[in-house]
Design a protein around this nucleic acid. Sequence first.
DNA 1: ATGAAAGCGCTAACAG
DNA 2: CTGTTAGCGCTTTCAT
Lengths: 352, 352
Amino acid sequence: MRKRFHKDVSVVVTIKEVAKEANVSISTVSRVLNKSGYTSEKTKEKVLNAVKKLNYQGSLVAAAMKKKQTLTLGLIIPDIKNIFYSDLTRTIEDRANSHGFNIFLCNTDNNLQKEAEYIHLLIAKGVDGIIFSSPEVDDGNIEELKENYPELPVVILGGKFPKLILNEVVVDNVDGAYKAMGHLLDLGHKDIAFIGGDPETYASVERHKGYKMALNERGIQVKDDYVIFDTFYIQSGYENAKRLLQKNDRPTAIFAVSDSIAVGVYKAARELNIRIPEQLSVVGFDDSQYAEILYPMLTTIRTPIKEMGQRAIEIMVKAIKEKQIIKETVLFYPNLIERESTMAIEADHPKK
Amino acid sequence: MRKRFHKDVSVVVTIKEVAKEANVSISTVSRVLNKSGYTSEKTKEKVLNAVKKLNYQGSLVAAAMKKKQTLTLGLIIPDIKNIFYSDLTRTIEDRANSHGFNIFLCNTDNNLQKEAEYIHLLIAKGVDGIIFSSPEVDDGNIEELKENYPELPVVILGGKFPKLILNEVVVDNVDGAYKAMGHLLDLGHKDIAFIGGDPETYASVERHKGYKMALNERGIQVKDDYVIFDTFYIQSGYENAKRLLQKNDRPTAIFAVSDSIAVGVYKAARELNIRIPEQLSVVGFDDSQYAEILYPMLTTIRTPIKEMGQRAIEIMVKAIKEKQIIKETVLFYPNLIERESTMAIEADHPKK
DNA sequence: ATGAAAGCGCTAACAG
DNA sequence: CTGTTAGCGCTTTCAT
């Protein structure tokens, strides 16, 4: 004879006990709880009473196993501490939740190795879909993922994979940068530096494109030592701005590829006693919470994060529900939010 | 005869196929993959080869069902957009991940109804534990949770439930407030206002206690119209500071119960042309990213978030591994970070 | 309208 | 050292 298991003291009540309590079969319980199939009002009531009495809480993990649907989504971002991603994450979590999904949060620090590990884990845990925000250009992990799991719904926020069948929700970065530069150029600036973030990043490369485009259009030579790529951290903006602003031919304006970088620029300017906007104009990107906290308030390019996050979830949910893998791309346009950090160069530019 | 199911096109390979490919039983596969029990080097190799060949990815949901361990944790916070919680969440996610756990992120906006729903969902999804950050005082949901699932490991960050058997990682808020006030008092301030956040919140009530305590100790009458409770949002700090600063007997210093509130205070001061710190000293709480972004940089009370988050995970993991539910409370002490937003009142206080 | 039974993919006890 | 087998808690045919 088989040895008795040690009694499992788990207090958790299962569908079986509910069935017993209600004097029906477990399938009946399942039916009323899922509102599937027919059940008489009377049994329905019996079941519901038993559920209440036993304080029954169905196991979604068991259900997931049968239905192959965990009702959870993976969200892969570089870093939740970055205000841009926390804003985004909030919208995504909210919208997902309202559709009955939970979110596994994954921070990669733009580390491909880490990203790969998360992807495996998410797959193992059976997520119904994965949302990537700001992947690197030509992120091999995503390619591999799509190869191994072509059926898994994927949406990319802020990234383009023309060859892969997945959904993309993007903002026109070159247009945004172009607008930022247009504003500066219109104010009479000619010596405009560019401080980018991580160079393998869509945000960096595309905004750089817009930067060059605007300059070229006005026939202004782009100076190599005016363009810098580093990271999106405040510290990076600080260090690079400091270097830039200590040059003999320092720029009269800086286009920072993100608000966080702009924060660093402010810090550097303050340290060097360079007044913004009188002696230095600066434009950021994102229109994050930082923009209004900075003094003077930051002129920046607004990325419609909320709308983008919301759209991402809609697409994801549709893909999951309809079980069809297609490629959908939606493009958002950013726009300039003028605040106080820019100024016409003629007005008063002590440097000149 | 039973009708054949429609072929399940799921591309996912299961342990069965690996077993077939490797010519062993599924239990053998399970054994080598889990490194449990004995297996000869030879079969081990065969299995591993098959795994690689088929690109097998075990299902943790099936495993979870057997083992009653999902390797996931629920994290319930008010709002990830709040920089305090994104800092915290990052540490928690990192540490949890390094122990093999994933995090379900839940934003409640301090809404008890929402919190209750999340708790149910987390339970249904079989999380191995739940971490609550900054619950309300006497949060009934937590009480109920512990009643229904006494075996579920719970750790509370920044909250106290003396009657419940759960773990607490707290910071001594009254001490923090007391230090903030001590600093201001030492600088000669007597008219010090208090701007709190949500009144049902430990942070608010305990910091208020510290505020009163410091004042009493120096024999200073606490003025009712100098203490305000509202929310932790910037906007709330702004509105309340504005009102405060327009009074005839406006305070010479403000103790803001969080850095975000302090941000609002800066804004109000700027609008009213009140210079910080010359005409108004302000102290914040948290030492968040905001503190160094603000100009002048904010003097604030540092909460050791990283250490606290890390500790929370350690306790959680221990509780899960050892399967014993005990009450552990760890207390952290905050300390004052002096920066530029405070100043001795004698020096130059135009108001006086 | 309801119940019986067959799994979902895996782990672990047990018997070789 | 390895295979057989019995579930984990639920959903879903299919039969009644």
